[in-house]
Each structure stands twice: as structure tokens, then as C-alpha cells.
């Protein structure tokens, strides 16, 4: 439920955050995924960040995560002294996909260099819902930019949505970039109002994680 493998049916959300200047109609829809490379035990790994619905029981929680994400990036730049208004990060909305769809990418014809694809709950930057997508390449297989494009293509085709949103700090913006979010290939996202059991699971998981890590996380809507 809170620990162990994330079930295939679990909903994940990828938040779409862009610099305020990104308004060109030439940007393609999959632009909201970012992949990072790692090496672990001699194997090449590509990772991406999403958020797990178990810790975001309503769409309000989902969007507040996105607003915090943009806010933190802006604050980091301000602290570094590199903040520019035109590069201000703006949260536009979220796309939904399932853990099972991510795992299926390891069996895709045409991506034979990938050994496994999986999803791990990994609290990061104080965000309890943060979850990592992990694509492990076969031993000796190099990570190529072409393979990363293929991963993005499959992730995008697994996505539903968007769920557009305008954060409080962006309500004054004219032509908010959320208007430009494209429909995902997998239809509309479904984030129905949670049942009582969802709330029970949510608070139980929060409590267990709190006991295990003795830390405070961002989870409030």
C-alpha cells in the first residue's frame, strides 16, 4: 500500500512546468518530460520524476504539488541570483498515466536496449508523493538520445489529460500557458473524487511514513 511495489493500476501524474517565455506554438506536446542519466552497478539508467496519486487523493493535491514545484524552482534561482522574470517557471497542469503503462515500456519492440522499466516511491525535495520512473539499460548498452526519444514517445502515448490549472501566484497572467496544453493521446484523465477508503489509505500512509522517517513533508492541498 505505502511500501513495496507500486501496483500496475496506480495513477501517476507528471506536472507540466514551463518558463513563462515558452509560448511558441512550435513546442511539441511531449516537452514536459525530462530524463536524467545515472549509472548504478555498471548499468546505465534513465530516470524521470512523477507523483503518485496515493499521496494526492484529490486533484487539488495534484495541482498544489505542481504549484510548489514551480515555486521552488523560482526560489532556487532567486537564491542563486540567476532569476529572470522571462524564465519564471509556471505550472500549467498535469498529465496522468499508470504504473503498468510505464512497466510495459520494457517490452516494447524497438526499444530492445532496455532491460527493465519500473516505478519507485522516492520522497524527494520534501515531496512525499514524488515517485521515480526508472529505465535500466542492458549491460553494455549505451544510453543514446534516440533511445530517450523512444522512451518519451511511449510515455506520451501512455498519458491521459491534460488537467490544466492556474496557480494562485499566476492568476494575473494574461495568456497563461496552460491554455496551450495539448490533449494527450490516451484520452481524458480521470481523477474522480476519492472514496472514504482512499482518505483512510492516504492518512495511514502519511502516518506510516512519518514514523519511518520522522520528517515533515509537503502534502497539504
Amino acid at each position: 500500500m505505502c511500501f513495496g511495489p507500486i501496483p500496475d493500476r496506480a495513477n501517476l501524474f507528471r506536472h507540466s512546468v514551463f518558463p513563462v517565455s515558452f509560448r511558441s506554438r512550435r513546442f511539441a506536446a511531449p516537452n514536459f518530460f525530462n530524463l536524467n542519466e545515472k549509472v548504478h552497478d555498471g548499468q546505465n539508467i534513465v530516470v524521470a520524476s512523477v507523483a503518485w496519486q496515493t499521496y494526492m487523493p484529490t486533484s487539488n493535491y495534484v495541482h498544489r504539488y505542481g504549484c510548489r514545484l514551480a515555486d521552488k524552482r523560482n526560489k532556487r534561482k532567486q537564491e542563486k541570483g540567476t532569476y529572470k522574470e522571462k524564465d519564471r517557471q509556471v505550472y500549467c497542469g498535469a498529465y496522468q498515466l499508470t504504473a503498468g503503462a510505464v512497466r510495459e515500456i520494457s517490452t516494447v519492440t524497438g526499444l530492445e536496449e532496455i532491460e527493465s522499466a519500473d516505478v519507485y516511491h522516492l520522497i524527494e525535495d520534501g515531496e512525499i508523493a514524488h515517485t521515480e520512473l526508472k529505465f535500466v539499460f542492458k549491460t553494455g548498452a549505451a544510453i543514446t538520445e534516440a533511445a530517450k526519444t523512444a522512451i518519451i514517445d511511449r510515455l506520451w502515448h501512455a498519458c491521459a489529460g491534460p488537467m490544466p490549472f492556474i496557480c494562485e501566484q499566476d492568476t494575473e497572467m494574461t495568456n497563461h500557458p496552460s491554455e496551450k496544453l495539448e490533449d494527450a493521446p490516451n484520452g481524458r484523465s480521470e481523477n474522480a473524487e476519492p472514496k472514504i477508503s482512499t482518505w483512510i489509505k492516504f492518512y495511514l500512509c502519511l502516518w506510516i511514513n512519518k514514523l519511518a522517517h520522522r520528517e515533515l513533508w509537503h502534502f497539504a492541498p
Partner: peptide, 8 residues
Amino acid sequence: APHIFNHG
């Protein structure tokens, strides 16, 4: 003209 994106 194509659309563009990046993943890194």
C-alpha cells in the same frame, strides 16, 4: 516546419 521538444 516541425514542432520541437527536448528531454535533456
